[in-house]
Nucleic acid binder design. Structure first.
Lengths: 337, 337
DNA sequence: CGACTAAGATGAACCGGTTAAGTTCACCTG
DNA sequence: CAGGTGAACTTAACCGGTTCATCTTAGTCG
């Protein structure tokens, strides 16, 4: 066990010949301290290598200056999570670092996970909780919010019971851009591989597809998927069965698009000559697929940063934190469409 | 600001008709409490929804039950980090969750980052610090260890100043298996694309290459890389220039292997017919390259778990924590070699 | 049956900060 | 020059637990 005999406020005060209170005020940057004393205190702090004890401080201030980010560790975890989370973690991390807050990462394995998170928050371990993508209608965000704990979600929560602030991306706009691009290029039989319909991202991208195709007056063709590459392969085969002459496919995720590319290759079709393919995500790997994938970029890192900023404002007591922020998406044109 | 009027020990004690001390002992599972009283207390805890205040507890116990994981946020960040870190985070997370410890994630942007981490640890915010891969000769681990803070590294630190416990994988063994596989298949002109020589992983894999080739009595051919795909492309072109007849290449990372595949394709060579390719990492994406990549799997998640376990033992005061653990690697044979 | 013992509960002293209320003192004003 | 004012510092009361020394109480044994 590490016995750290760290100097306390008391020690610094003695050394500087002042009271604990004065040292505290100096350390916390209060203005009502004479310059000479302030210097003396600072010197003592320096000499002793004093660092305030966080626990003691939290005890009285009721703040911890750390914020949790919850990663849902669902049973059916998929590889795309590992491409998605790092970006969001990084975004959140940068913003919190700038604000001198700490990031606490929690993974909620279904079972006791929820309860753990709740206890943790209520125990005052963190000042607020962020959710990095909600699968299904997770009750936890609402539950915490009702408890009075600041909550922000990445991705619109499906249950808006007590409405919690969230940041999401413009799914519909992205899909519209993709479909429009396909239509402009003369494609007329545009199918889609949909995402899981228990996630808002999956739902909205499919809705966007429906709307865009209806507007364009084109026939619709949908195959279900779950954002994974394998589901993309299966869905693509299914689509080709149902309409061998389709000339384009919009996949609701990059990984499914990769699966589609593979299935198309296996069926002897050329991309984009025979069939154009567009994905959604713009993961790094999509720059290197064969052919490189045209896709809708969603600013994941920026979403993380935005979420963190909202959280910081919430914690600061800002009364007018926007209840939702929707970030723009952007069509990135490469070779597949 | 959330005004949580949480019940305190005092409240529970009053309700149960006992003293604070007794409630404390019940909550912490002490055995020397009469069954009837224990029940009464537990009932009061339940009714009031009592959750112990973590700050107050830490203040006296000097423990926080949370552990930091440092992700070096180096200037020249590469995509592979985002494939590597999630796995290690997950491994660490699972192990800590099982031990009911919290995971605090910190990213150290070069500049003030180090100092921030140090202050944070010294402030008693965490019980220990883990490093998720060390670039270069980072002084931070040693510095913290010298301060008396429990430290464990993933990847052998280059500066073994104060030796800090670490967990690493068997780089040399993996490389040997790869080279052996190539030799057995009749390859005789085996080149390598090396990793950065300021990282232990890069150094050891190159050393392994040298040793294996020397043993086999084959000529060596080395091109430098930095673990990125682009460097793999450049290095492969370079190698082909220098020896157009090479029949195999071992890349010290999967991403560089992917780059090599691309460069080989562009040069008109077929893999594995003309040139066999083996990588190192076994990232998920390597199952889907064209052709699927034969590679050395390193158990990243397991490394994370092991690191966490070492940390837990360290914190528990276990006197005989192994100063190093080396996990086995394994050759995964797919189509590229 | 009384003294001794041990199990079990309690009171109170911390842990190391923050901050409201109080004190000191130099300076200003009528 | 007495009284008032405000800046600057100190005192002391918390924050909410843990834990040790102490006190009760019931059980044990000669």
């Amino acid at each position: 066990m590490t016995t750290r005999e760290r100097p306390t406020l008391e020690a610094v005060a003695r050394r500087a010949g002042v009271s604990r209170a004065t040292v505290s005020r100096v350390v916390n940057g209060s203005t009502t301290v004479a310059a000479t004393i302030r210097e003396a205190v600072n010197r003592a702090v320096e000499e002793l290598g004093y660092v305030p004890n966080q626990a003691a401080r939290s005890l009285v201030t009721q703040r911890t200056d750390s914020i949790a980010l919850i990663l849902p560790e669902t049973a059916n975890r998929v590889f795309s999570d590992d491409l998605f989370f790092p970006a969001i973690i990084r975004g959140v991390g940068m913003e919190l670092e700038a604000a001198d807050k700490q990031l606490v990462l929690m993974m909620t394995g279904s079972e006791a996970g929820h309860h753990r998170v709740e206890r943790y928050a209520v125990a005052g371990h963190v000042d607020g909780i962020m959710f990095a993508s909600i699968h299904g209608a997770d009750p936890l965000p609402g539950l915490l919010a009702r408890r009075g704990i600041p909550v922000v979600c990445s991705g619109r929560p499906m249950t808006a019971e007590p409405p919690v602030p969230y940041v999401d991306v413009d799914h519909a706009g992205g899909v519209a851009a993709a479909v429009h691009h396909l239509v402009s290029a003369g494609r007329r039989r545009i199918a889609t591989i949909a995402g899981p319909q228990d996630m808002v991202a999956g739902i909205e991208r499919l809705t966007g597809y429906h709307e865009s195709l209806r507007e364009a007056g084109l026939p619709e063709l949908v195959a279900p998927g779950d954002f994974t590459r394998e589901s993309g392969i299966a869905a693509m085969r299914d689509l080709l069965d149902r309409d061998p002459k389709l000339d384009a496919v919009f996949a609701a995720s990059d990984l499914m698009a990769h699966g589609a590319l593979q299935a198309l290759r296996e069926s002897g079709r050329r991309v984009p000559d025979d069939v154009a393919v567009i994905g959604f995500d713009d993961f790094e790997i999509s720059r290197y697929s064969d052919p490189p994938l045209t896709t809708v970029r969603q600013p994941i890192g920026e979403a993380g940063r935005t979420m963190a900023r909202q959280m910081l404002r919430l914690i600061a007591g800002d009364p007018e934190v926007p209840s939702s922020v929707v970030l723009p998406t952007e069509l990135v044109i490469r070779a597949s469409a």
